[in-house]
């Protein structure tokens, strides 16, 4: 009872603390004369796109379904047919002049923040996919008895972990990208997967080595080859154990993907920069960008948690 009351106190304290931090931020922005303009932001998330269809010539309108026919005055000129027009705002028999609005099409389009978010998501998904492939292969090579594979793996891992990601992105884009004529997207995804692959390789190696060696012996004693034993016995068990550190690595990848904005990929971060340039509202924009990254990363860790729960339900 007492400890419950104590918890309640600390929880309330936490809320008060966070609120005062927020108030502090607000107050300090007052000090620098910052004008908050949150109302400018929504248009960068979604905006209403208005498309107008205008009359190509003078004449009398006749509408049937989605087709608009404009018959110019005088019997010699041929009527103009406009097909598949949406949102028609004229009626049969109206007289229109060239340039008049015949129809108004309203549709909602994704603003730069959301298209940036989608690009970030796309880069992350591709990079995670390739990083897993690279990481698993390298992790297996790392524990292989073949000195060539083993040393190659160590060299790759050390090389990647010993140099900054930003530099790697530049090398992939300017050097490798130029030689092989790669687009920015490809270069960016490659840099991120090669970078993350090195870390995943170490996670995979640790995961495999954490599986008791009796498992491999039991599998081999049943006549399974090394490969079959690896695939059916060792890797499935290692996979479960590597899920939490893998999730951490994927979350890092999503965040690190913001660095590809330096090679002009319009991801979430680059979109943020562009919006700041046109609105001069850096505070609102960067808070929003941060929140959007947070949405992506929390979604991922939620999914991984679900997967973990599902897998651990098996062996109780």
């Amino acid at each position: 009872m007492n400890s419950k009351r104590k918890d309640l106190f600390w929880n309330i304290f936490l809320v008060v603390f966070l609120l005062s931090v927020a108030a502090g931020i607000y107050a300090s922005s007052k000090k620098v004369d910052y004008i908050w303009r949150w109302n400018r932001l929504p248009q960068y998330v979604v905006y209403k796109d208005i498309q107008e269809v205008r009359a190509p010539s003078d004449g009398i309108v006749s509408v049937s379904g989605k087709t608009v026919k404009i018959t110019p005055p005088g019997s010699r000129s041929t009527p103009v047919l406009l097909e598949n027009v949406k949102g028609i705002s004229v009626r049969n028999g109206d007289t229109v002049f060239e340039g008049d609005v015949l129809a108004k099409n309203e549709s909602y389009k994704l603003g730069p923040l959301l298209t940036g978010l989608l690009i970030t998501l796309e880069i992350s998904v591709y990079s995670i996919f390739f990083a897993i492939i690279i990481g698993v292969c390298t992790g297996l090579a790392r524990i292989s008895r073949n000195p060539f594979l083993k040393k190659l793996a160590i060299f790759y891992i050390e090389l990647i972990r010993g140099t900054p990601l930003l530099v790697q992105i530049f090398i992939f884009y300017y050097f490798i990208g130029t030689i092989f004529n790669l687009g920015r997207m490809t270069a960016g995804v490659m840099a991120l997967s090669v970078f993350t692959g090195a870390y995943i390789a170490e996670i995979v190696r640790a995961g495999i080595q954490s599986v008791h060696k009796g498992q491999m012996e039991a599998a081999r004693s049943l006549g399974m080859s090394y490969t079959v034993a690896m695939l059916l016995v060792i890797l499935p068990q290692a996979f479960r154990r590597t899920l939490p550190p893998m999730a951490g690595q994927f979350i890092s990848l999503i965040k690190d993907s913001s660095l590809v904005s330096v090679i002009s990929i319009t991801d979430l971060t680059k979109s943020g920069r562009e919006i700041v340039a046109s609105t001069f509202s850096p505070f609102e924009v960067w808070f929003t960008v941060a929140a959007l990254y947070l949405v992506l990363t929390s979604l991922l860790s939620y999914l991984v948690q679900l997967l973990e729960k599902k897998m651990s339900a098996q062996d109780k």
């Binding site: 008791h212 009796g214 498992q215 012996e217 039991a218 599998a219 004693s221 049943l222 006549g223 016995v233 499935p236 068990q237 479960r240 098996q314 062996d315």
Partner: peptide, 15 residues
């Protein structure tokens, strides 16, 4: 394949 082995620590596949 022709030589079965049973270990002290069972070594069943837990998954």
């Amino acid at each position: 394949e022709e030589v079965g082995m049973v270990f002290q620590s069972f070594n069943l596949f837990p998954h």
